[in-house]
Simulated scan of single mutants.
Amino acid sequence: MALNEHEAKMAHPRMAAGALFFDAAGRLLMVEPTYKDYWDIPGGYVETGESPLQAAVREVQEELGITVALGRLLAVDWAPSDTEGDKVLYLFDGGQLSPEILAGVTLQEGEIKGFEFLSPQEISERSIPRLARRIMAAIDARSGVAPIYPEHGRQPKDVAA
């Protein structure tokens, strides 16, 4: 099916969604994927017919073996990439995980090597800069009442004409 001129100009970004989980000390849960050389939050790509929230819940269940109700949307990050294409990334608040839920964590075999709760400094050390910025912006958004909109984890510049 051929695209008309208008459709050809429309963006077709990939969408991904993840969850931010915390411990009692306020540190963030991050996972060590087998297929990346940096740490990440639990999450992944949104599948056809799935909402970003449904994708985040599914990915948490797949990667950590736990089923949790996620809280509010914290951030929607626009992240264009020359190598992977444009992305829209949704981050949801998973809240503080109880010891009972943590005891039920079962890592996805072949995809997740481990998980740890990390301080902000450790997040920056173990992750890539754009992801660390996105995470820190979303953590800051927890104290606000509305989601934030970063671009590559940064506040967009004024684009008024």
Rank of each mutant, 00 (worst) to 15 (best):
I135F: 14
F117C: 01
V57T: 06
A160S: 13
V68T: 10
Q121W: 02
D77E: 05
N4E: 07
L74I: 07
R27F: 04
D82W: 00
L28H: 01
G95K: 03
K36W: 09
A56Q: 13
E50I: 12
V105A: 12
I148F: 04
R58K: 12
P33C: 13
R72C: 05
L102C: 12
E151W: 00
S51M: 08
E32G: 06
P13Q: 02
K113G: 04
M10R: 08
R72S: 08
P150W: 03
L53W: 11
Q108V: 00
A161G: 13
G43Q: 07
A103I: 00
H152M: 12
E7L: 11
K9W: 00
P42L: 06
R142T: 14
H6L: 12
D23P: 03
E47K: 15
P129I: 09
Y35A: 08
R133G: 01
M1H: 09
Y38K: 02
L29E: 06
G43M: 07
G44E: 07
M30Q: 06
A19H: 05
I139V: 15
K36Y: 15
I41N: 01
P147G: 03
V57A: 08
M15E: 15
A16N: 14
E7G: 14
K113L: 13
G114S: 15
L91Y: 11
G95Q: 03
K36E: 15
T83G: 03
L3D: 15
W39T: 06
D23M: 05
A8F: 05
K9G: 05
Y149W: 11
V68N: 00
G71C: 10
L131N: 09
T67R: 14
P42I: 06
W39S: 07
A8W: 03
N4R: 08
S81G: 05
Y35M: 03
E125V: 01
L20D: 02
R130W: 08
E50H: 12
G85T: 12
G114Y: 04
E63P: 09
